[in-house]
Design a protein around this nucleic acid. Structure first.
Lengths: 195, 195
DNA sequence: AGACATACGGAGGCTACCTCCGTTTATTTT
DNA sequence: AAAATAAACGGAGGTAGCCTCCGTATGTCT
């Protein structure tokens, strides 16, 4: 079921341009905040403003697409980690990347929240991707006996979102790193010292 | 010490107009979201656009002022509550108002977050006001023996902020109400049933 | 190679931002 | 009470960014 991709394949050049726009937008939003002008994004990508708007009809759509793309990239990086490391260590590394990403894109938090408030379902797919990735880590860890079995991906994700509540400024990386470490330690089987 | 009010008293008409602008802006932001046009705010207040900008030089300043004003109003409502009810009941009622306010202004959450990210100290005074109000409830409750003594205002505030993490849509009022009730129950002395 | 669909670009209309300064109104002074 | 002064008002208009529209260009299929 579920309407089989309503969007037909893009022409080769269009596909490539879309990519360029996403990269340019990601950089623009990271440096200039969510109000970076659409013109500057297009210019940075070396494309016309019309092209930008054809691909992403609104600023919100663009922001959402950038977020989705970057989170997607993050999620697929889980493959390599799981191939190289035991699941608990892999999860720890992956979370570190998540924290690093959250820190770099701190300025977008407000914008994402605004968009989410207006169009809650826009982020459903991103949420799914994150949940699926977490589930893979958990399953692998369970199989290896390094991660406890009584935890749901949704719980972990909720805990990870606590990141956004950490105020900027004072040593964001350190603080959030500690929070994540705590979380991962809690997920491990025998724990690392306490109890 | 501390520079004695650098801002001299406003002229009577200016003071009144400032008030009108705040009311108009509060309403505009609540209904049209944080992007309500500055023009519409001025028009709604029955004043010129120039007047609006003289009082609040940027949109951010206006949003911040509205927030501060409304939170201030909320904080002063604590007086009446404390006069009429025992501290724990008063606190419960006050939190209910906070929740109601948060729900009504949900659309502003993102904007507030964006502004806070850029200018963290802008909200320091609002935070102080909330902390001071909470401290009054806690002190009264302690004196009356209805609220436990080992809790700090800052802890309660942090817990209250959890409100903003509750997704909109599905029964926000019910869910957040439950969260607050839980919090208040935890603050009470003998608790209401559980050990 | 020709035909067709798809995609590009940027000029331009539009809207909202924000400044500037001539006019109006409150307040103080005599 | 009226003049003098300082404070505040209003809105026209310069500026900038949003987004649309459509003529041109380029990929794709036969």
């Amino acid at each position: 079921m579920a309407a089989p991709d309503t969007t037909r394949a893009l022409r080769a050049d269009a596909r490539q341009n879309r990519e360029r726009l996403l990269r340019a937008a990601g950089e623009a939003f990271a440096t200039a905040g969510p109000e970076a002008t659409m013109e500057s994004v297009a210019r940075e990508a070396g494309l016309g403003i019309g092209t930008l708007y054809r691909h992403f009809p609104t600023r919100e759509a663009l922001i959402e697409a950038v977020y989705r793309d970057e989170v997607g990239r993050l999620c697929s990086s889980a493959d390599d980690l799981l191939a190289e490391l035991p699941a608990d260590a892999a999860l720890e590394r992956w979370m570190a990347r998540f924290v690093e990403y959250a820190g770099r894109k701190r300025g977008l938090a407000g914008a994402l929240m605004s968009i989410a408030a207006a169009q809650a379902d826009l982020f459903a797919s991103t949420r799914e991707a994150l949940l699926a990735t977490l589930a893979r880590f958990l399953a692998a860890g369970r199989a290896q006996g390094t991660i406890r079995a009584d935890v749901e991906a949704a719980d972990v994700l909720r805990s990870m979102y606590a990141i956004w509540a950490i105020p900027e400024g004072e040593d964001f990386v350190g603080q959030s790193g500690r929070v994540m470490r705590l979380l991962v330690d809690g997920l491990r089987h025998g724990a690392t010292g306490h109890r």
